[in-house]
Simulated assay, not measured.
Amino acid sequence: MTNVLKHTTVSNDLANQLMDAATSRAHELGDRFSIAIVDVSGVLKNFRRLDACPLVGVDVAQDKAYTAVLKGIPTHEWYEGIKDNPSHLYGVPAAISRVTIFGGGYPIIVDGELVGGMGASGGSYLEDMDVVKSALDAVIG
C-alpha cells in the first residue's frame, strides 16, 4: 500500500543490550543514575533506576531520551541551535513539553537511521553524557 509509512525502531534486544552497557558504566561512576530508552516515536521502551539515584533523575532521564529522538540530535546540541535567538532559548523548553537542553540524551542511530533515544540522569551532565555515550559506543560502535 502506498499510503502507509513504515519506520524502524529500537528492538527489545537492542534496548536491553544498551541498558546493560549503560548500567555497567553507571556502576563505575557511582550507581546514582536513572537510564531511559525510548522508541523512534518517543515512547518509553526500557527504564532502569539504580539504587542511589535521586527521584528527580527518573523524569529527567526519560525527558532526555525523548528530546534526543525529536530531532535526532544529542540534547546538548539543542542549546547551540537556540541560544542566539531569545524567543527560541526561552520559548522552546517552555512550549515543547519534555524538551531538555542539557547533556545526557543521545539519539540511537543504527545504519544511519534514527531508531530511538537514550537518556541518563543523576550525575553531572558530563557524567550523564558519559553513561549514554559509553553504552552507544560499546553496543552500536
Rank of each mutant, 00 (worst) to 15 (best):
S24K: 04
S24M: 02
R25K: 14
R25C: 03
R25E: 15
R25S: 08
A26E: 09
A26C: 00
A26H: 01
H27F: 00
H27A: 00
E28C: 00
E28S: 05
E28M: 02
L29R: 07
L29I: 09
L29P: 12
G30W: 13
G30T: 03
D31N: 15
D31Q: 09
R32I: 06
R32E: 12
R32L: 12
F33M: 13
F33H: 15
F33G: 05
F33N: 11
S34M: 04
S34Y: 04
S34K: 01
A36H: 05
A36M: 04
A36V: 07
A36R: 04
I37E: 10
I37Q: 05
V38T: 12
V38N: 06
D39L: 13
V40H: 06
V40R: 09
V40T: 07
V40K: 08
S41C: 05
G42I: 10
G42F: 07
G42L: 07
V43Y: 11
V43R: 15
L44S: 13
L44M: 14
L44T: 12
K45V: 11
N46E: 12
F47T: 10
R48G: 00
R48S: 11
R49V: 11
R49G: 02
R49Q: 14
L50N: 06
L50Q: 15
D51G: 09
D51R: 00
D51Y: 03
D51T: 09
A52M: 10
A52S: 14
A52I: 10
A52L: 15
C53G: 15
C53V: 12
P54V: 05
P54I: 05
P54D: 14
P54G: 13
L55N: 11
L55R: 03
V56A: 06
V56C: 02
V56H: 10
V56F: 12
G57Q: 02
G57K: 02
G57E: 07
V58L: 11
V58I: 14
V58M: 09
V58N: 08
D59P: 00
V60N: 09
V60Y: 13
A61P: 10
A61Q: 03
A61V: 04
A61D: 07
Q62L: 04
Q62A: 13
Q62F: 05
D63Q: 15
K64E: 11
K64T: 05
A65P: 04
Y66A: 06
T67G: 02
T67Y: 03
A68N: 07
A68S: 15
V69L: 08
V69N: 03
V69G: 01
V69W: 03
V69C: 04
